[in-house]
Design a protein around this nucleic acid. Structure first.
Lengths: 252, 252
DNA sequence: CGCTTCGTTGATGGGAATCAATAACGGTGG
DNA sequence: CCACCGTTATTGATTCCCATCAACGAAGCG
């Protein structure tokens, strides 16, 4: 069940230190993950802190199920989750992967539209939707940040649609890897050629609209072409960034 | 060129009547198309009105091109437009169709990400992005409405991604037709079995990630199955709503 | 060390893309 | 009103690629 007692996280230390209990240790996530630090005053951050609950989520756990009322919004501080939709006949779509820094709660529906499943031991910050609503009304800055974020996600969703509609398997995979790399880069502050894949091949397939076999073959192909290396199953090393970008039609 | 001098539009009449010039005749679109009538005060509506310019856009005209700076946001009051992205090798994606009531301007980028092309003689209301920014800051209601709209579009974009990733051609087309029908229904206030298709087969194909031939064949198939009829090329009559919904995996 | 799960590789078939030809539509001018 | 033409849509024949089915191999875990 893994409550990883690690000290490796390197958040920027805030003036209010975490105190180790659930209700307190999440100031960082509020600041970091809603990206509101520049927009919120000290009072406002305190208000956020009051209603934020940091929760560990073990790998394999389902945080929410499609159709359930959306009682909470979340920000993710550790680990990785997937957003899954399953059709009646078993066809599966992974709409996206939720990584540290991501906000879960931008939806027009008051019910969950996806299963939210932890694919690694994770930690999320939980805020009741009702309180989030109050908070948004109280702090226009917050609403502005959320709108900005929603617009960015909209752009990303549209890029994804292009990939699904018109790109070939190798192009899709290249696009996917580059996006992952970009996310890791912004998250860590530094760019690296190594990208970790917390998700399995099947998840990648269901995200890219392919089968697991095709994903596997495509990995092999990219490896044989010298674009990437696979030092471990879940680690990709990007060998030829430029070529990969060209393959992914990265002209934007 | 077509400046359709028609009197068929049936907007709810507001207290400030249109005066026929460009700067004035767009109160309706502000009210109707940003869906802010319930949120804005009279003063606020006047402020919107001041900076709104209604413009005719002839069929075939390109309103904006991908890569250009986003100088304006738009609301559409008449006609239909398409959002198009074209890859270097000619592959095309139609990200969506913009119909009366839609808002064009939710993007995290300060450059256009799509070509915006009129597929019918249209009319749009134009607001400079700078002024829109001011307005949003002044009226939190407006920002709230925009966030809500962004969330709805996000949901729609994700539904679309599911269709592209996992649905078969007949399912995709069924989904597409039902969505069009739903939009027309909310727009007209009444539901109808007749859906008009302002876009050509090629546009539908590039929207659904198929070829024009497959779209055509799929129309035929649905017609032969008795789910739809095609009284004209650009009009679909939905004969079996329930069956069509089931085909589209409309369980949401 | 054996088991189970997950990933890779191979062989085959189906379905959409492609290429090609015909048919329907819409606008124009006689 | 109708004949003509360009465009768009439909239908047909073929090809190719991905999904499917199946077997093998690798990795994590007890």
């Amino acid at each position: 069940m893994s409550r990883p007692a690690q000290g490796t996280e390197q958040y920027p230390v805030s003036s209010v230190a975490p105190e180790g209990n659930g209700g307190r240790e999440c100031l960082q996530c509020s600041v970091r993950h809603l990206s509101v630090c520049s927009a919120l005053s000290c009072d406002e951050v305190h208000a956020l802190e009051q209603i934020t609950v940091s929760t560990p989520v073990a790998m394999g756990t389902t945080l929410a199920r499609a159709g359930e009322p959306r009682a909470y919004v979340y920000t993710v501080t550790e680990g990785a989750l997937r957003l899954v939709r399953t059709l009646a006949d078993g066809r599966r779509q992974v709409n996206g992967f939720v990584l540290p820094g991501d906000y879960l709660g931008l939806s027009g529906s008051d019910h969950h539209r996806y299963d939210i499943e932890a694919i690694a031991d994770s930690r999320v910050c939980r805020v009741p939707t009702t309180q989030m609503r109050d908070l948004r009304q109280r702090y226009p800055h917050l609403e502005r940040k959320l709108l900005q974020r929603a617009c960015q996600e909209l752009d990303a969703a549209q890029d994804n649609a292009l990939a699904l509609a018109r790109l070939q398997p190798p192009e899709r995979l290249a696009d996917f890897l580059l996006r992952l790399a970009a996310r890791e880069a912004t998250l860590n502050g530094r760019s690296s050629n190594r990208v970790s894949l917390p998700m399995g091949r099947g998840d990648i397939a269901d995200h890219l609209g392919l089968t697991m076999e095709t994903v596997s073959r495509t990995f092999t192909k990219l490896r044989q072409q010298g674009l990437i290396a696979l030092p471990h199953l879940n680690v990709v090393e990007i060998l030829d960034f430029a070529e990969l970008q060209q393959l992914a039609n990265d002209e934007f």
